[in-house]
Design a protein around this nucleic acid. Structure first.
Lengths: 229, 229
DNA sequence: TCGGGCGATTGCGCATTTTCAATGCGCCCG
DNA sequence: CGGGCGCATTGAAAATGCGCAATCGCCCGA
């Protein structure tokens, strides 16, 4: 993905500064950032890293959507998490462990590449960053748990409904982009066809309204009924 | 569970010391442990904590088995993780967050209760403990991912087989205790009846051999065939 | 504009799982 | 020793999801 280099980040004045890993850094910390942080802009399909690969950087997602998936023994893939703006992926490199997942871009995505060495150095001196790291891990764990309880439990209809609701959770407009049925199936542990059938049925029932190409407005209250029953 | 108090721990000479959170502590650190660490012995069914409860301690499991589960909107439970010897539960209290799960003892379990304050203090001074904490979190995350890919994916037969194999993974004897079918279903996202039918069928096919009450010897190679196809 | 190509959708038969209910089994308590 | 209780097992019908293949729609490049 290195071809997608988009310049060096100005962390001090980062628009996402307050919600990002470096939130707690002070002027003195930035002094220590000798090498600049690189930014990239990635297109759908781009691969950030592979499972098993020994990496030396983590990534902050500035905008966009990245899927983390694992290969199953039968060759298919199971998507284990979706990562979005302000999330960090590849935390495991901080422990010198190889990446756990394949990380693939689903929508145009902007990222910052954080070299492990830099994070480690800052972490040693700045307890705020350290706490922030713990919090990141905890958030990831909570996400994983929700993935189990919400997206891997219940009937196909329930799962699809929950996934949709999750996609608009913090969109006041109740609108979202949908991804391919194959990915949807891989997230929910159902087949592509079942995913397709369910979405199609929701459309027919006007639970989903296509506002523009691949953008959908959701009937939140009724989807909630399906999700929770 | 406080009734089950079983004395104060001698952390310095803990039999599990090398594999436990305090592995990296030095003599000076132990000096700082003013208050002793309490130990408890818990019987099946005992509840360590509830989801949503604001706690102030984490627990190291010395021996036994604890399930972490979450309540679903429909009132049923989904078990999200199994924790065993040397695992830590309740890490989230370190971030002042309420417990994420219900923690219930499944087999006779010995635990040490670690007050958050103590861990925090030690952590501030001892970088090894700090790294150890990160590693714990990472381990939990990896477990959660495996729970998704192995125990929440595929047919009921596959899931049961994978669960069984997981139970004996580090038992050289390929022998294990089984839990109730209801719990099994809650782990795998299937109904109690399906769990029962599947286990019963495995027994008939001699993939499971009951050596003593509720102890089973597994036909690992054949179960593996079922698990991976 | 035409021919592919790709992904979504759909039909259909089959297998699996759920659901609800009945039955069986072992164990504890009186 | 005889319920009663909790849990496992089983049956049977209905619901759900899967697998495979055909079709459709849309966009893109020749």
């Amino acid at each position: 993905f290195k071809e997608a280099w988009a310049g060096e980040a100005d962390c001090r004045n980062c628009a996402l500064r307050s919600s990002v890993l470096f939130a707690g850094l002070e002027e003195a910390d930035f002094e220590r950032l000798h090498k600049p942080i690189d930014q990239f802009v990635l297109q759908p399909g781009a691969m950030l890293y592979y499972a098993g690969q020994q990496g030396s950087q983590m990534f902050t997602i500035r905008s966009g959507l990245v899927k983390l998936s694992q290969l199953l023994p039968d060759g298919s893939q199971r998507i284990v998490r979706l990562m979005r703006s302000t999330d960090i992926i590849g935390l495991e490199t901080l422990l010198d462990q190889p990446y756990e997942h394949d990380a693939v871009v689903m929508q145009r995505t902007e990222i910052c590449a954080l070299p492990v060495a830099v994070v480690r150095e800052l972490q040693a001196r700045n307890p705020a960053l350290h706490t922030e790291l713990l919090a990141r891990w905890q958030r990831a764990l909570k996400d994983a748990d929700e993935w189990i309880t919400q997206l891997s439990t219940g009937s196909a209809k329930q799962r699809v409904a929950r996934l949709l609701l999750r996609l608009v959770k913090d969109e006041p407009s109740s609108e979202c982009e949908l991804f391919g049925r194959e990915d949807m199936g891989a997230m929910l542990g159902i087949t592509t066809e079942t995913a397709s059938r369910t979405v199609a049925e929701f459309k027919r029932q006007s639970l989903l309204l296509e506002t523009s190409t691949n953008r959908f407005l959701l009937d939140v209250p009724n989807l909630r009924l399906i999700a929770d029953l």
